[in-house]
């Protein structure tokens, strides 16, 4: 651009300058909307978030001016924060890993031809189509001590006395969190399975024939042929699951509200709890969350060399 302007000053006729500037701006007509959208939906909220996290807010949202890093100092002094972060790590790793493993199996099954496959595939959508909040509430009541459905079954199987302390699954942080992870896996499986099924359908039949001709065992075929070819689908599913699960809120909120104390809260839930007490501190935590999710996603993409196939 500089050279254009200089040349313009050196005596070229003005219309030519205007024309070159105009033609330089021409692509804007195509990329402009996208830029505007990103600026509005992504960049502006980030700016607002940074601002909020360095502002002193009254409990009811009155702006009392900037307070530098006070909110962050206060946040890092929260004695529950380390536990919350640790729990968030466990939450993401366990939920995503188990979701992926189970979905691989489910997808393999649903990729087979069997009578009623269409119906079964539709049924698989149910947990996905249902509101997550609704699912969480239903599980909460199924786990109710005394007469919750799951407890009655476990009781009849002789595994758990439905009136005992053990049956109060959501009352203790350990078992409560475990059930919440189970529900998170339950609602993540449909999407993941469909992504994997889509991936399986792109694997050409010839490669399986070739593997058969070479005398590869079923297990060997799966690990050396199917899985590598599924890689793009698995990567997409993992990245989206990581972000979804990290930001998941309704399951924990509906089942235990993050309690007892804050012992089943992840960062997203803790952020919401803090919002009722200190908006600035809550905004600081949402900045931390934001940084974490970016680091996690980039680290994952880096480690998995997600685009190596495209480069090769």
């Amino acid at each position: 651009m500089t050279t254009h302007t200089e040349r313009g000053r050196l005596g070229r006729p003005r219309p030519a300058l205007a024309r070159s500037v105009l033609s330089g701006l021409a692509p804007l007509a195509w990329i402009g909307p996208a830029i505007a959208l990103i600026a509005f939906a992504v960049l502006w909220p980030v700016v607002k978030m940074v601002q909020s996290s360095t502002t002193h807010w009254s409990r009811y949202g009155v702006n009392l001016g900037s307070n530098g890093t006070d909110n962050y100092n206060k946040l890092f002094k929260e004695q529950d924060l380390s536990g919350v972060l640790e729990r968030t790590g466990i939450w993401v790793v366990v939920v995503v890993t188990l979701t992926m493993v189970i979905s691989l199996g489910v997808a393999q099954l649903f990729n087979q031809k069997f009578p009623g496959r269409t119906v079964a595939r539709w049924a698989l959508i149910a947990p996905w189509a249902a509101s997550v909040m609704m699912t969480a509430i239903i599980f909460k009541w199924m786990l109710y001590p005394g007469y919750g459905f799951i407890n009655i079954i476990l009781n009849d199987l002789g595994l758990v006395d439905r009136n005992s302390n053990t049956a109060d699954w959501l009352g203790h942080s350990g078992s409560g969190f475990m059930w919440e992870m189970a529900v998170a896996i339950f609602v993540s499986i449909p999407f993941t399975s469909y992504t994997v099924i889509a991936g399986l359908q792109t694997v050409p039949a010839e490669v399986y024939e070739a593997a058969k001709v070479d005398g590869a065992s079923k297990v060997r075929t799966y690990f050396s042929v199917t899985l590598p070819l599924l890689r793009p689908a698995l990567l997409v599913a993992t990245v989206i699951n990581v972000m979804n699960v990290f930001n998941s809120f309704p399951i924990i909120w509906e089942m235990t509200k993050g309690g007892p104390g804050y012992d089943t809260a992840t960062t997203t839930v803790f952020m919401w709890i803090l919002k009722g007490q200190n908006i600035g501190e809550s905004a600081a935590l949402s900045m931390v969350n934001f940084a974490l999710i970016i680091v996690i996603v980039f680290a994952f993409l880096k480690v998995s060399k997600w685009n190596s196939e495209a480069d090769a």
């Binding site: 992504v42 980030v46 978030m49 809120f249 997203t268 934001f290 970016i294 996603v297």
Partner: peptide, 8 residues
Amino acid sequence: GLAASLVL
């Protein structure tokens, strides 16, 4: 990812 995490 950015957009998704900012929806909230």
